[in-house]
Design a protein around this nucleic acid. Structure first.
Ligand code: SF4
Ligand code: SF4
Lengths: 146, 146
DNA sequence: ACAAAATAGCACCATTTCAGTGCCTTTTCA
DNA sequence: TGAAAAGGCACTGAAATGGTGCTATTTTGT
């Protein structure tokens, strides 16, 4: 239904959290407890991010995860690709093929739309999300302002 | 996995076909036979498009479907909304709500992305798809050119 | 009146994806 | 050596998705 999967959503949340923690390592436990996310599932996600080289993992006490790449160079597109496979809006789109493509009336148009969406996903970076997160952290309790 | 459903895909194909047939009525049978699509499923889709007022349906012999609205005023967003419900990239996005939203680190960013994608879907119209289709019809057999 | 064309309506099934969990192993620090 | 922490594996339940069959109703044409 054209929505983010929980894998992507949780992954982005975890990455945003890590982005706000500088160079220190954060355990999966800390992340899920702080953010209220399902443990095992997030562990799975973090593992994927680790093997993909987006985060750095250190075992043992005091270990955990931290970002391995610059948030400004990490696009949503890349994160999603890691967590749920390459984008494929339709069989013919995003580099795929469809046997009906030659005769299909909308193949060209669908490809354009898919490219545009791919573009949106590529243009947003983790740095953008972190900026939002920081803004939220800087004004955590608006109630005080009253 | 962030892809179009078959409902949307078939729906758009059918609409593109109808767009190329002017004001004459085309039966569902003609559409699915010409385009090689599953009959019952497309019938279901056309019915949805009909009740939503995107196409006009006439029963009985000689009847069928035809576009009810200007292709240039019919956005992909609207078609998709009719066929698979309103876009909702995440619980908090596209007008929805999420109980974690106040504390969520990426809610604002996710909303922006969702709005951008919504924008892409809104900016493409059926007329764009039809234009592509016409171009394809005008050069149907490139083999002849050789 | 009647047969055929065509949409409308309903209920169901199979497959795939998705979200989530359990349990155990390995590494590493104190 | 014990606890913390990531890594690995297999599984389950729920939902979305794609698809079909059958019947009823409307309408045209003969
Ligand atoms: S749009 Fe046409 S070509 Fe592209 S996947 Fe769907 S059917 Fe195949
Ligand atoms: S992004 Fe944050 S707020 Fe939006 S739906 Fe996911 S968890 Fe809820």
């Amino acid at each position: 239904m054209l929505r983010f999967t929980k894998r992507s959503e949780y992954g982005l949340i975890a990455l945003a959290y890590l982005g706000g923690q500088g160079d220190s390592y954060c355990s999966a436990r800390e992340i899920v407890d702080t953010l209220g996310l399902p443990r095992r599932l997030c562990a799975e996600i973090l593992k994927s991010l680790s093997t993909a080289g987006l985060v750095e993992a250190i075992r043992g006490p005091g270990g955990g995860y931290r970002l391995k790449r610059e948030p400004s160079g990490l696009s949503l597109s890349e994160v999603i690709t890691v967590l749920e496979g390459p984008l494929r809006m339709a069989n013919c789109a995003n580099g795929g093929e469809c046997e009906k493509e030659a005769a299909c009336l909308i193949a060209t148009g669908v490809n354009r739309v898919a490219d545009d969406i791919q573009g949106v996903l590529s243009s947003f970076t983790l740095a953008d999300l972190i900026a939002e997160a920081q803004a939220k952290i800087n004004a955590p309790t608006p109630a005080i302002q009253v």
